[in-house]
Structure formats: structure tokens, C-alpha cells
């Protein structure tokens, strides 16, 4: 057992999978340059030395290397592609959406595309184009699995499960959760470390996690918002409001079993999303809850999300843009009082 942050846990997870299975390799930009960074957030630091020829640095060509990952996966390899910033997924989306996601179906079930795409997201003082919450663009694509990891334990376990899955899996990571210490720690970083067991383990790609049990209101979030929701729940507890916090974690498919159990209990739901309110994953979850558990609701579902604007740069506006623990707590108070 050791305490690790997300970047370290992912690094160990990748190394263990590469040791276990020689078909696993990494492909992306600046991920294995000697003397370099090990990817923009140090996840692959040192792996190029450990696995010669299997940490493949590409030109700046997101569409190209994503397509290469798809092609290699179809030929029996198990690539882990690294998108330096999630925003660049727009460049790669043809290969992900038109090829990786559809090959299985349009081949009548004869093609397998066992690839992983890792991508960091989140508003972190970098302005509009290195900040977007990208998961919304992929959750509605049949054929893709989409997960978001908010703890080091989940990051390692879900990475391993994704590598072993025979389908394309997208793993969204948050720039403020990689690690709150060290050279590449971000201002505003949040502690997402976990106790990591010594042995091999995986975390399923289709299950939400109850982070804090409660009885009055269900708060759903993922990535940074799962942490902010937990902080809000702490505040609310002191006021006598019992919030159940669920890390949705699996964004496609969504685990309505775990969510439903909570909704039946509390009858009140707040969904928190970093990213603009319009067209977000929270809209899908809200609709899914209404269809399945609408009769159990005691009040309409509430969403707490970012403003419908591009991500701003200046800290005062960025903080105003993104939901925080105070806004989440207030939404819960308002809802619990109804």
C-alpha cells in the first residue's frame, strides 16, 4: 500500500499493463522525449527508458496519431493514446467517432478496436482553448465508452480495465487533480491521492461510486466537481443537511442503478458539471433520471454548471465561470428547503 496522486498512479498502471501484455504501447506528443516531460502532465515520465520502442512520440498530428492508434488496435495491438490537452480531441474526432466507434458495428461485429484515449480537461488559467470540458462531445457516440477519473485509485484501476477492454475507451482526467505537489503542480490543484494497493486491481468502467452517504439530497458530479461536491456536503452536514455524493465516474454508459438507489432514497437531485450548462452531460443524466425515477422526485432536478460562454482566462472570471463548493451547497440548501 502506498499513497499516490493520479499522475503517479496512471504511470504505474500503464507500466504494469505494458509489462503484462507486450501488445500495449503508448502513442502521443512529447510523451517519451529523453530529458522531456513524460507528456504534458508527467504521466509517462521515465517509461520510454523502461520500454524502448513502445512509447511512441509523434509529430503534432492529433488526427494522424489517433488514426494510427485505431489502425494498430484493429491489427491486434492495444494502444494507449495520449491527447496532450482534451481540446485537441476536436482534431482527432473523425478517427474516434467515424472509425474507432463504428468499426465494430459496420463490420457486422468482426472488427475489434481495443484502444484507450486519455485526455486532460478543465479550466486552469489557460484561456479558452486549453480548458474545455470535452466529455460531453463523446458521451452520445454509440460504440465509445467514456469514463472520468477523480481519484488515484480509480485512475489506475480504470486505466487497467480500459486497456483490457476490447472496445475504444476514453478516459478523461482533470488537470487540477494530477497531483498537488511537484514541479508541474497546478495552482488551485486539489488533493486526489489515494492509498494504492500493492497488487493488481481493476475498477469497472460502468459503475458510479458513492463517495459520501446521505439522506436529504443526491449530488452527482465527476472529476473536479466530485471533489467540490464532497466539500459542499461537508459544509451542509454542519447545517444539518445530509447530502449523498456520487461520483458518476462512468459517463457512457451511465450507472442508473447506483444513481437510482440514491434518488429513491432522497427524492432530490443536484447535478454538478464543469462545462457550459447547455448541451452538457448533466442534461442527459437529468433526462435519464426523469425517465426512470421521475415518480420518486419530490422536486425538479437542479443543475449547477458553468456559464454558456467560452472558458475565460482571468482568474476572477474563471472562478465565476466554474461551479464551486459554495454554489453547490447553495443549490442543495434551496432544494432541500422545498
Amino acid at each position: 500500500m502506498k499513497r499516490q496522486g493520479i499522475a503517479e498512479a496512471l504511470r504505474d498502471g500503464i507500466a504494469e499493463e505494458m509489462t503484462r501484455d507486450e501488445r500495449v504501447f503508448c502513442i502521443g506528443e512529447d510523451i517519451g522525449v529523453p530529458g522531456g516531460w513524460g507528456g504534458a502532465f508527467t504521466v509517462t515520465l521515465g517509461l520510454a527508458e523502461k520500454f524502448p520502442g513502445r512509447i511512441i512520440d509523434t509529430p503534432i498530428a492529433e488526427l494522424g496519431f489517433t488514426g494510427m492508434a485505431v489502425g494498430a488496435a484493429m491489427m491486434g495491438m492495444r494502444p494507449i493514446a495520449d491527447m496532450q490537452y482534451g481540446d485537441f480531441l476536436f482534431l482527432a474526432s473523425d478517427q474516434l467517432i467515424n472509425n474507432a466507434a463504428k468499426m465494430r458495428y459496420m463490420s457486422g461485429g468482426t472488427v475489434k478496436v481495443p484502444m484507450v484515449m486519455r485526455a486532460p480537461i478543465g479550466a486552469t488559467g489557460r484561456g479558452s482553448q486549453h480548458a474545455q470540458s470535452m466529455e460531453r462531445y463523446f458521451t452520445g457516440v454509440p460504440g465509445l465508452k467514456v469514463v472520468a477519473v477523480s481519484t488515484a485509485y480509480d485512475a489506475k484501476g480504470m486505466l487497467k480495465a480500459a486497456v483490457r477492454d476490447d472496445n475504444p475507451v476514453m478516459i478523461f482526467e482533470h488537470k487540477l487533480l494530477y497531483g498537488s505537489k511537484g514541479a508541474r503542480a497546478e495552482p488551485g490543484a486539489v488533493d486526489a491521492t489515494s492509498e494504492i494497493p500493492d497488487g493488481d486491481y481493476t475498477v469497472p468502467l460502468d459503475r458510479a461510486a458513492v463517495r459520501r452517504p446521505g439522506t436529504d439530497v443526491t449530488v452527482l458530479g465527476w472529476l473536479l466537481m466530485a471533489h467540490f461536491a464532497a466539500a459542499a456536503a461537508g459544509t451542509l452536514a454542519a447545517e444539518g443537511i445530509s447530502a449523498e455524493v456520487i461520483d458518476v465516474r462512468s459517463l457512457s454508459p451511465i450507472d442508473y442503478e447506483t444513481i437510482g438507489e440514491s434518488v429513491r432514497k432522497t427524492g432530490r437531485v443536484v447535478i454538478v458539471e464543469e462545462g457550459p450548462k447547455t448541451g452538457g452531460v448533466s442534461a442527459e443524466i437529468c433526462a435519464g433520471i426523469m425517465e426512470r425515477f421521475g415518480d420518486h422526485l419530490q422536486a425538479p432536478v437542479v443543475r449547477v454548471a458553468s456559464a454558456d460562454v467560452p472558458v475565460p482566462f482571468t482568474p476572477i472570471l474563471e472562478n465565476a465561470y466554474r461551479p464551486d463548493a459554495a454554489r453547490i451547497a447553495q443549490a442543495c440548501r434551496d432544494l432541500a428547503g422545498r
Binding site: 488526427l63 494522424g64 488514426g67 494510427m68 485505431v70 489502425g71 494498430a72 491489427m75 494502444p79 472509425n99
Partner: peptide, 11 residues
């Protein structure tokens, strides 16, 4: 085209 390059990378 990128897909074929990836297949060849696998080979």
C-alpha cells in the same frame, strides 16, 4: 490513410 499507417505500425 492514418488508419493504414497504424496498421503498418502494428506490423
Amino acid at each position: 490513410i492514418p488508419l493504414a499507417a497504424g496498421m503498418a505500425l502494428a506490423f
